[in-house]
Design a protein around this nucleic acid. Sequence first.
DNA 1: TTAGCTGTTGGAACCGGTTCCGTAAGTTAT
DNA 2: ATAACTTACGGAACCGGTTCCAACAGCTAA
Lengths: 347, 347
Amino acid sequence: MEPSIADVAKLAGVGKGTVSRVLNGHPGVSEKTAARVRQAIRQLGYTPNVQARRLAQKKSDLICFVLSNRDFLHEFHSLVLKGVENYCSKAGRDLVFALWRYPLDGNPESVVPPRIIANRGSVDGVILAGANHVECVKAIAKLGVQCVAFGNNLIGCTHLSEVDSVWYDEQPGTREAIRYLASLGHRHIRFAANISLPWFARNYRAYSDAMLDFGLAPALVSINDTCDYVEIGERAVQEILDLGEPTTAIFAGNDVVAVSVIRALSRRGLQVPRDISVVGFDDSPRCIESDPQLTSVHVPKETLGAECARFLIEKISSPDKVSGARVVPTHLVVRGSCAPPRQDVAL
Amino acid sequence: MEPSIADVAKLAGVGKGTVSRVLNGHPGVSEKTAARVRQAIRQLGYTPNVQARRLAQKKSDLICFVLSNRDFLHEFHSLVLKGVENYCSKAGRDLVFALWRYPLDGNPESVVPPRIIANRGSVDGVILAGANHVECVKAIAKLGVQCVAFGNNLIGCTHLSEVDSVWYDEQPGTREAIRYLASLGHRHIRFAANISLPWFARNYRAYSDAMLDFGLAPALVSINDTCDYVEIGERAVQEILDLGEPTTAIFAGNDVVAVSVIRALSRRGLQVPRDISVVGFDDSPRCIESDPQLTSVHVPKETLGAECARFLIEKISSPDKVSGARVVPTHLVVRGSCAPPRQDVAL
DNA sequence: TTAGCTGTTGGAACCGGTTCCGTAAGTTAT
DNA sequence: ATAACTTACGGAACCGGTTCCAACAGCTAA
């Protein structure tokens, strides 16, 4: 039988309350008594029972990381999770991991929250990562659970602070990328993705704004009927070549698309960056594994995770006092996939 | 104030015990009373308090997935985690995620377990994934926590059942791969990895056994001074070409090495599979993203996760009745990276 | 009619902590 | 020496469930 706080109290010749005070570092215990208690704790090898403490304090010190509508934890969210874990473990909180699937295009009313959230008191708060419908986030919040969402993959979100959320800002990194390409001499920089997906739409807007700022004309190729990034890259290259309009650089919606673009180009005998430049978005590990190494807009994934955790913990300790959106910037990482445009070739 | 079980009892005009019996589906409650209780529950919108139940039952229904000594959740363990999550959620258990770092080559005695495990009662059991020293697994088990380890990344493990663990078996898939290459006409199949890492050593043994079974001579190139898989692939190609011995196929220790091998070969003007065949190990998503698509030994990652969870839950419900090692087989997935050897070229 | 059995049910005791109240001991002021 | 105040500390009450025991009602068998 494991020793309880009563055993410690008896051995130290004090009351349960005093032991509790020593354990939690509360004031009002003389150093002499505290030492005796600590000695008894050591002697019995006593460890407090977490569940009992949770019941008494009416809090769980547990935070739930929910990954919504993803078939598994991809690199991106793995790193977000890492950031969350890191922050939580420093804050003395443990992390519950849960998956959540529901039809993103269905009626948000009929979506049932994951069991762990419905179970009252089982977690103090929730971080909603993966792709979520904004109404489902609101539904969770309405359940009386503290909740922070990862913003960039929200569906149906009309403005940043519609729900408490953490976002990366595509603008600075995208701007840097366009400035960089422009400084190399590029004028015909084309955006390639599927802008029916909200995150690509946001990227495109940032790209478009930056292009205009530098006096360049935005140009788009969007493959709207598939979510397979590899396919998007391949077909985008096909369309760009068919188009006949000049294109000296391709700004891909993310790194998977970019790598696929590079491969599709090389199959057609076009070398990157000699014949055409490519920029990715995400700065995922495959940037280094690809050949040439991919210049890409860095998204600070761990920072995003840490910000989610920080925000949530603030909400838990002072509900209704903090709310809104928090945004972290992106920046460009230059590698080997861009070069000045060739003068002699018109794509 | 949230309604408690006492409120339900009062409203239904019964005792707390009866409500509890109804909630847990225990026998000995008349249907008439049960209906009244259910009505009261609905009326109050009552949800049981998880922490109180956990305290009373002395169990948490929580399982902890510990990822050891990895910088983050890579694809492989992401899928293992997915398998675990899947099984757990069906078994009505929630999942706690924790990271654990300790020097793998240091003294296992001085390693401190993660807080979540040390906290008595906070989880019912632990799945140890990532790379662990076998002594550290034993140390956790000695703490009185039910525990199952992912076997293939164990360090210092002399035999399968040294600790309760789940393994994938390299043999069947590797055998298939060698048989396949042999059937294409290959005689000079070389294994490339870093066999100072235990998992590569195990792969090499399986490769070597299979080669001997088919009457072929095992041949090895091992890059022992780095754990960077991309570098292993590049330098392995270098060594193989420098060696001057005939090599018509390369069996890489894992897919990252394989992809790196393909790229290094192509930089030297050698095309896969025309000039040389390559087989990977893992069957990771990059097999499909690579060009040509990579033939690889499939490791059933989700199954591994599910087996870990099943094993652990069995151990929790009947401790000391189940133990040992559980093994799941691998198999070959044929894609486009192998072809008959060229007769005219001697590498 | 009475003893014996079964099916229900209420409620006390318990799980192992936290918190708060009352009191005893010690300290300072008058 | 006494009042007033501070500090230390024991222990009851509580958090919200589960479990077990005693009791009671209704039924059967002798």
